[in-house]
């Protein structure tokens, strides 16, 4: 554990809680992509099956359980409790275009050929692109609520902080995992456009709207 990893995890946690808070407080999931949330739930489910097979630390296990619970909770709020507020007309990205390539790639580039390892790898690849339906939705509606923007910023920062963590770990403990590094870089690049808009608009008190 180092400061970059800790900040990354806290940023990730903040993002997930911000989203739940937003939906609960406004009693609405307008502007949130249910498809992205579904993808994240698939990601956590596939990756954190290792809760049953390998123990790292109490911290890791607690965080995994929180991420899993929060993501299923978000789906419950979006597709059940506040379903009428879900803007599915604008959530039209085809997620099979993300799931199938991620699955295929996880059979091609993987550390070890075991079911658990392929599921873990699949989750890493899918996570890298899981935000695309959400970004697509923002581009279709041309705007995002401020709290949604904070959510996206925290979510994007998490993997960027993980990249610093991997650089740090490479120098301090010779740790190098090309699968997570390459996927993490792709994931962070996808947010670059958004980061730019966030810094130039939202941080100056303006609403995030596209020209």
């Amino acid at each position: 554990m180092n400061i970059f990893r800790l900040c990354g995890d806290l940023s990730h946690l903040l993002a997930i809680l911000l989203l739940l808070f937003k939906i609960w407080k406004t009693r609405s999931c307008a502007g949130i992509s249910g498809k992205t949330q579904l993808l994240f739930t698939i990601v956590y489910t596939a990756r954190y099956l290792d809760l049953f097979t390998s123990f790292v630390s109490v911290y890791n296990s607690v965080m995994k359980i929180v991420f899993l619970t929060a993501s299923y909770g978000t789906l419950y709020l979006m597709f059940y409790k506040f379903k009428p507020t879900y803007d599915h007309n604008h959530d039209s990205f085809r997620i099979l275009y993300l799931i199938v390539p991620a699955l295929v790639l996880s059979f091609i580039i993987v550390h070890v050929y075991t079911v658990m390892e392929i599921l873990w790898t699949f989750s890493i690849y899918l996570e890298a692109v899981a935000i695309m339906p959400q970004l697509f939705m923002v581009s279709r509606t041309g705007e995002a609520e401020t709290i949604t923007s904070h959510y996206l910023f925290a979510l994007g920062s998490y993997r960027a902080l993980y990249i610093l963590n991997w650089i740090y770990r490479y120098y301090t403990e010779d740790f190098l995992d090309w699968i997570t590094i390459m996927a993490g870089i792709v994931q962070t690049i996808l947010y670059c456009d958004f980061f730019y808009l966030y810094i130039t608009k939202v941080l100056k008190g303006k609403r995030l709207s596209l020209p």
């Binding site: 990730h12 290792d50 790292v56 995994k64 390892e117």
Partner: peptide, 10 residues
């Protein structure tokens, strides 16, 4: 035995 990768990140 079967090789198990231990992933220590989230």
């Amino acid at each position: 035995g079967e090789a198990i990768m231990k992933h220590d990140e989230l």
